[in-house]
């Protein structure tokens, strides 16, 4: 059970005045649940993940992950692949493990399952953007995470590549039983992936709508059911979802 309660999260602004990024944000997720967090650019989505992932401690609030050793059980996938260019594909995945024989076997299996079995010894610089994300995905799952944090990991990829990665993500997630917190500004992507969608307001961000999806898997962003729900949500909450529908919006708010 993931339980997030952030009272206040501020940044020192460029002018010196504090910028309130998150306020009164409460979010929970059941074990094994796939939760998408959707919100407009600059609403504090990345900030939320950084706080939950322990990258940012300067916050009023708390994050609890029941039943997990929070020091080792969180996987993180960033907007960019963020692989170490001087490590081979296999070593990049092994970097975050204890490199035990079991971890090695898991790394090889994961990479093979993602179609990277032939490039284990290649350096990331030789790989396409889509392949680099697959390595990053394998790195996130190799530690058998209780919680997986994903910060718009499939932006700036072409549609077929992104769809393929989403399919792989869902496969691995179903196999691993991890809780996933997936941040995106793309409502269609959220509808294709999530069990539940939490909508954030503009800054200071808080959850303004919490919607459980009853869509069958597997699904794709262009399925009729997804399209219908997309239209329905837009009709129900036009003011809330303004600015979340343009797929071309790839602003990176880091």
């Amino acid at each position: 059970m993931l339980d997030i309660a952030i009272d206040r999260k501020t940044y020192p602004d460029r002018a010196g005045a504090p910028h309130l990024a998150l306020a009164g944000l409460r979010l929970t997720a059941a074990p094994g649940e796939f939760v998408c967090v959707v919100g407009p650019s600059g609403c504090g989505k990345s900030t939320l993940l950084n706080v939950v992932g322990g990258l940012d401690h300067d916050v009023e609030g708390r994050v609890r992950l029941a039943g997990a050793d929070t020091t080792h059980d969180i996987g993180f996938m960033f907007q960019e692949p963020r692989l170490m260019p001087w490590l081979t594909v296999l070593d990049n995945v092994l970097l975050v493990t204890d490199a035990s024989p079991a971890a090695r076997r898991r790394a090889r299996e994961l990479l093979a399952a993602m179609g990277l079995g032939d490039v284990l010894d290649a350096y990331p610089g030789r790989l396409s953007g889509g392949m680099q994300r697959r390595v990053a995905l394998a790195r996130a799952f190799v530690i058998e995470p209780k919680l997986l944090l994903m910060d718009e990991p499939f932006v700036s990829l072409d549609v077929p590549t992104a769809n393929r990665l989403r399919t792989m993500l869902v496969e691995q997630w179903q196999r691993s039983g991890a809780t996933v917190l997936f941040v995106t500004h793309d409502l269609r992507e959220a509808l294709a992936l999530a069990d539940r969608i939490c909508f954030l307001s503009a800054a200071p961000g808080r959850v303004v709508l919490d919607r459980t999806l009853a869509l069958a898997r597997p699904r794709a962003p262009d399925d009729a059911a997804v399209q219908a729900l997309h239209a329905e949500l837009l009709a129900q909450h036009p003011e809330l979802l303004a600015g979340l529908t343009s797929d071309a919006d790839v602003t990176q708010d880091e």
Partner: peptide, 24 residues
């Protein structure tokens, strides 16, 4: 800093962070 964040997010031991992420 983005690569250092990876090391922090995955809670890499300090020595491994230094030798595998920082020093290279």
């Amino acid at each position: 800093a983005r690569l250092m964040q990876v090391a922090h997010a995955y809670r890499l031991p300090r020595l491994r962070t230094f030798t595998h992420v920082y020093l290279p």
